[in-house]
Design a protein around this nucleic acid. Structure first.
Lengths: 245, 245
DNA sequence: AGAAATTTGTGCGTATGTATG
DNA sequence: TCATACATACGCACAAATTTC
């Protein structure tokens, strides 16, 4: 439990970035909840053993992410520290799962296409390679903040029209219902993590170097027939997953 | 499915590091399995849009990690590339879960102590704050490579002697059995991701800037009584989680 | 109200690291 | 290996806004 993380020089990661990551984590951890503010720049500089300018670079990056806001003469205020919890279970539902943690959930359809299934997609959905599938690219927001960017594939024959249904409702569960699927189950979920790529930067409004959690999920209807394969990307600094058994 | 990750300049993460991360991930993903070698430096330089010097810096870093080995006149050989899959379920077992993916699993006891439970720990274990708990710090290795660094807390009264049992068997499951707990269940698992800190660098043999997956898990006996709370850190480039429902 | 202390904002010069060709 | 350009980090100084006494 002893905190002894070090700032490493000449590691290929700039000091300001390491410090930004540390401060972000401390905020998430609730370390500064008493004051609602980050310690003064001069204090942080001393703590990390760097120049005040370097701390300022770190705070500027966090400001860009909307995590803190500096006010001259007062200090650097914490704007948000919540971390959305996304529960994963046999009945994983996106909108519903995050529903009580945000005032407003939003599901945007970015793009939609019908295409022949790649070998990987076909295998995951349990169909012949080349069978038509629908690809739906979606962006989810909670209170206006991006929380996930997903690519989903559906068997084309069964789910034609799901784009309109999703566009209308902003929810896959609701879209399924409109197409006659009243229930479905999460078969499996793979979770990995990687650095944000350029599309994450724009889609999820991340800063370069941020971490994204990547899930690869398979949903099936109650009979066990695969109905959806999807790959989703979440900003790791604001999302965590919980598996309840 | 289109690969379009970009190398980002002025992101606070040096180009050579970003490229090293990309190549490490590609190796883990099996992209170069046909030849067992990384593409020539010139090719990589062109692919990433950087100078060959920069690629060389990246490969030098990977060589330092023991992932590749450059041979003059031949190319850059891949030394190891496995990515471990860690299944999470109601009956999550560490050693057993990874058992078939490595020739040899190893569980090392790093340190052990009896201490009063912090408010957080006590709450998780469902006991009064200040009650004695046992803290066990462990390092897991698969075929000699670190795959997880964990801190676990146990109710002291019930599990005194678990350190000796773990030291002897290298497995929590086996240690439980020696103490009369023949079965236990995973109640919940939280998963987040963050940058590697200095202790990760040494414990998990990571390079600065690497990503670690962090799990926070609670285990209970068949009666539902909490018996273990633990926080584990995994190198994200070589480990993924799978939740089977 | 006003002076002092605190805290963020800005400028400039210098040294070193990173990346290119 | 060398030269060049730019990013990173430091140290110092001072301005501007706010809080404290």
């Amino acid at each position: 439990m002893t905190e002894q993380k070090q700032i490493l020089r000449q590691s290929g990661v700039a000091l300001w970035r390491q410090i930004a990551d540390r401060i972000r984590a401390a905020i998430s951890h609730g370390d500064y909840d008493e004051t609602g503010m980050v310690p003064p720049e001069i204090v942080l500089a001393e703590k990390f053993g760097v120049n005040r300018h370097t701390v300022r670079s770190a705070l500027a990056a966090l400001g860009q992410e909307g995590i803190v806001r500096a006010v001259q003469g007062r200090g650097t205020l914490i704007e948000r520290r919540e971390r959305l919890n996304f529960p994963i279970s046999r009945r994983t539902r996106f909108t519903q799962g995050l529903g009580d943690q945000a005032r407003e959930m939003q599901g945007l359809l970015l793009s939609f296409a019908e295409e022949p299934a790649s070998r990987d997609i076909a295998q995951r959905l349990g169909m012949a390679s080349g069978t038509q599938v629908l690809r739906l690219e979606a962006l989810r927001k909670a209170d206006g903040r991006p929380v996930s960017r997903s690519s989903s594939w559906f068997p084309a024959e069964r789910f034609r029209g799901i784009d309109a249904a999703f566009r209308q409702t902003g929810s896959i569960t609701a879209a399924y219902r409109m197409l006659g699927v009243s229930d479905y189950l999460r078969v499996s979920t793979e979770i990995t993590a990687t650095h944000a790529d350029s599309s994450d930067l724009s889609d999820l409004a991340l800063s370069p170097g941020a971490i994204v959690l990547v899930t690869t999920a398979l949903n099936a209807d109650p009979e066990g027939v695969p109905i959806q394969y999807s790959v989703s990307r979440f900003p790791a600094d604001t999302v965590q997953f919980t598996i309840e058994n």
